[in-house]
């Protein structure tokens, strides 16, 4: 039985439909991602999953429980980190951790958590004196402090610098290794690609596709892709004449070439023969961004 099962979720706010029709299911021990642009309905979806919002349609089951009806039983088994939820300004990190530990029947040792999250030296600091990244890591600690079976994390690494982001990803992987199921909401493609076993792409309140990151990429993989810069005049015909090239697109000095087979060798040979100097010639891989673009017709980021 799936740990989380969402079927035909529908949620309206006055004057606006936030979620049209969202279905997905998350298996035990999985890191499942919900990836989509801002305003796609991701947050409303997770808020419904954890019982903060009552759906207008559809059904949700988490650990076999109904998030609204079995609210209290679910809360001890699901850890949640939400966006835009702060702590009292003058509350110190240690006080928050001790207080939140006391809410749960079987909490983890918060000292280990703050060690793993790299805020062990901040336990005496007031919340308002923490940096954005430290607040974020404290939020994650509070979500995990109850030793949950399911962790729901909304925009996990927003506000973190790249190093802190990597560290946080490792923490999430360690949590999963302990058997915790993770539902991860993000608009950050790289995060989804790195962490998620499977993910749903959500756009305008609907699920566009659900698959593993490689599976999603494979759906749209159109072969090889090259990118380089040219300084002077450049006639695309030099490349379109090649049998392995399927498309050439120029934006200012940037040229993008798509094609199949041994694209790199043939293109560089053709450029050399035509006397064109190509700078920063590199192969590009298809990403989730490309998958999203292909499936929805618009960019994920932006």
């Amino acid at each position: 039985m799936p740990v989380i099962e969402v079927t035909n979720l529908h949620k309206r706010y006055p004057g606006k439909v936030a979620v049209h029709d969202v279905s997905f299911s998350v298996e035990r021990g999985e890191i499942f991602g919900i990836l989509g642009p801002n305003g796609a309905g991701k947050t409303t979806t997770v808020e419904s999953v954890i019982g903060l919002r009552k759906p207008d349609g559809g059904t949700i089951s988490v650990l076999g429980l109904d998030p609204i009806r079995d609210r209290d039983r679910l809360r001890t088994r699901v850890g949640v980190q939400l966006q835009q939820s702060e702590l009292p300004e003058r509350m110190r990190v240690r006080e928050a951790l001790e207080l939140y530990s006391s809410f749960y029947p079987d909490p983890v040792d918060w000292r280990e958590l703050v060690d793993q999250l790299g805020i062990a030296d901040k336990v005496g600091t007031a919340f308002r004196k923490l940096s954005g990244g430290q607040k974020q890591r404290l939020s994650i600690a509070l979500a995990l402090i109850g030793n949950p079976e399911v962790a729901v994390l909304d925009e996990l690494t927003t506000g973190l610098d790249p190093q802190a982001r990597r560290d946080t990803w490792e923490v999430i992987q360690r949590i999963r290794d302990r058997g915790v199921t993770v539902l991860l909401v993000t608009h950050f493609m790289e995060e989804a690609e790195y962490l998620c076993d499977r993910l749903s792409l959500i756009d305008a309140g609907r699920v566009v596709a659900t698959d593993s990151p490689t599976g999603l990429i494979a759906r749209v993989d159109s072969g090889a892709r090259l990118r380089f810069r040219v300084a002077g005049p450049f006639d695309p015909a030099v490349l379109t004449a090649l049998p392995c090239v399927t498309g050439v697109r120029r934006t200012g000095p940037q040229v993008q070439v798509t094609g199949t087979g041994d694209l790199l060798a043939q293109v560089s040979a053709a450029l050399g023969a035509a006397g064109i100097t190509a700078a920063d010639l590199r192969t590009e891989h298809t990403t989730l961004d490309d998958a999203f673009l292909a499936l929805t017709g618009h960019q994920l980021a932006g």
Binding site: L52, V80, L87, F103, Y104, L142, G146
Partner: peptide, 14 residues
């Protein structure tokens, strides 16, 4: 507390 989501965070706990 309401504006800054302190109540909201608490609502996700037991």
């Amino acid at each position: 507390y309401r504006e800054k989501g302190v109540l909201r965070r608490l609502a996700t706990t037991p």
